[in-house]
Design a protein around this nucleic acid. Sequence first.
DNA 1: ATAGTTGTAACAAACAGAGTTACAACAAAA
DNA 2: TTTTGTTGTAACTCTGTTTGTTACAACTAT
Lengths: 147, 147
Amino acid sequence: MMQISSRFTIAVHIFTCIETFKDQYKMTSDFLASSINVNPVIVRKLLGQLKEAGLIEVRRGSGGASLARPADEITLLDIYRAVECVGHGELFHFHENPNQQCPVGRNIHSSLDSRLDKIQSAMENEMQNITIAEIIDDTKAKIAEGN
Amino acid sequence: MMQISSRFTIAVHIFTCIETFKDQYKMTSDFLASSINVNPVIVRKLLGQLKEAGLIEVRRGSGGASLARPADEITLLDIYRAVECVGHGELFHFHENPNQQCPVGRNIHSSLDSRLDKIQSAMENEMQNITIAEIIDDTKAKIAEGN
DNA sequence: ATAGTTGTAACAAACAGAGTTACAACAAAA
DNA sequence: TTTTGTTGTAACTCTGTTTGTTACAACTAT
């Protein structure tokens, strides 16, 4: 039943809000939380991670968040890594202690690791090819159409 | 910290054992469990899922498991799906209730879904291109080299 | 019958995700 | 300088999943 944490889609939602509403409203954690429909503290934790990754700027005290660089220079991979949806950058959890006395047990790791890396890379390459600008533009277009 | 369950790598380990040792030993859940170094019940549950997916055959009573079709016709995607590492076939967990009153909240899903599908497909395509025959051959080669 | 095995239920422990309250630190405006 | 609104963060609960464990009925071949 394992899935990549909703922190990832929430983070994308945050970016989309910031760019869509930046000229109208101050992008506080309360505003974002109400659009996403989660607790403001969840948003503040994510803002902290996105800020630490250098993707956004957050103004303490006065409040509000904004992008640290143009939306077409921020990819889904940047966000994915920033919010640490996967531990140690390893997508697959390898069983820890295969029996080293068994010929298969002591070789399975080196036989499998390179393939798991390839799978993970395929996924991350695809993420790197998608910028949040695309998603923001898409959303703005839908809003302009009256949706 | 989220990672794909070790059930997946354990399942690959199972296949590798079965094909490597099939002429020497009976592949019981106890044998497999000792190579993997987990409880035999874990193995039996996985064997049940792999059997239900039509990938292996398990002999009740007399004991032992074997492949249901040639190793080069079983892909990592087959195994991945069989052991249900991801819920509902959805890799990403979308936040459930974005605010429908917010223009971004009510459009984010349709803007993001197609991209998430592309990412998941990239990963699954890569999995489909890797057969367990590759991993088994690799492991056998390492054993033959004295590892 | 017996012995060895699978299938499965029932449970416990450890951990992670998600949500909540509370409050100190901070910055701008009154 | 006080007030107000906000961020940053600690501490906690709740819930669900993974993983591990014991126990035993169902089954098959010897």
